[in-house]
């Protein structure tokens, strides 16, 4: 038996950097350092753990869609222990929205071949959190998403989804699309050996024509949504700051009463 896992990852602007928009109202990816989205590290980690806990022959492919720099994200995932990588890169992809991104990913996943797709719960830049559900819809396979625990056995994926109202145990047959949360388990750091090994692992590059996708289906032109404007949130006006000299609690209560909260 073999198990083919495809982990989708995204190269995002560092959230601690000064993120902003480019002139065409897409996310500026040039002026801020990028990295593998932290939330995707959890997906790579769970793929590695499934592999380690399996008697099957497991192959982990990391897949990303993005500009040249996005290779850095793939390299990080490979150094954590993934086996190979696929980079979908095409100038026409610039400005693609979630619906279009899911098309590119789904076509690439089908071309790569898969039994299990694992994604993070959301990207740290767009933060929509809808791509895993869109992938399941496009691929026509079960979605087993937002898991804080996941396991695979005998062609079945099981997991726990901690929702607001309840914690649910889920089960589906492979092939399936899984997404994992930041509660699923801390992601490992790449070892020195892992970093060296990653340099020799294969990274394939595909463009839209490899995936039979027309340029009009993606990019800003193909987007189903339009951003009309983006404005920096005005800085909050400076508040009153007091040092507690024994009366801090009372002073704060006075402020809250003045604002009619008490």
């Amino acid at each position: 038996m073999s198990l083919r896992i495809v982990v989708t990852v995204k190269y995002v602007p560092d959230a601690t950097g000064d993120r902003h928009f480019a002139d065409d109202l897409t996310v500026d990816r040039d002026d801020v350092d990028g990295l593998l989205s932290e939330l995707d590290e959890y997906a790579v980690e769970q793929a590695l753990q499934i592999s380690e806990n399996s008697d099957d022959d497991v192959e982990i492919t990391v897949l990303t869609v993005g500009p040249e720099d996005a290779k850095d994200a793939l390299r990080k995932a490979l150094s954590m222990g993934a086996d190979k990588a696929i980079h979908v890169e095409d100038d026409d992809i610039h400005g693609t929205d979630a619906i279009g991104t899911s098309l590119v990913l789904a076509k690439a996943i089908e071309k790569a071949g898969y039994d299990l797709v694992i994604s993070g719960m959301a990207s740290t830049d767009g933060t929509m959190g809808v791509v895993p559900a869109l992938l399941a819809e496009r691929l026509g396979v079960p979605q087993v998403t937002l898991l804080s625990e996941v396991s695979v056995e005998d062609g079945t994926v099981k997991g726990r989804r901690d929702g607001d109202a309840a914690s649910e145990n889920l089960e589906a047959s492979l092939p399936a699309v899984v997404s994992v949360t930041d509660q699923s388990g801390e992601a490992r750091y790449p070892s020195f050996k892992g970093i060296m090994a990653a340099k020799k692992k294969p990274v394939e590059s595909w463009d839209l024509s490899d995936l039979d996708i027309e340029a009009e289906e993606v990019g800003l032109e193909g987007a189903y949504t339009t951003v009309d404007n983006a404005a920096e949130r005005p800085a909050r006006t400076a508040g009153t700051i007091v040092k507690d000299e024994g009366e801090g609690g009372k002073q704060l209560a006075e402020f809250l009463a003045g604002q009619k909260f008490i």
Binding site: I241, D244, L252, F255, I262
Partner: peptide
């Protein structure tokens, strides 16, 4: 940087005092 009102102090003093006052 975000606050409308801030208290620089030990929360173990300020929070219970605030609760009592409320």
């Amino acid at each position: 940087d975000l606050v409308d009102y801030g208290v620089v102090g030990d929360l173990f003093d300020v929070v219970p005092a605030l609760t009592e006052e409320i």
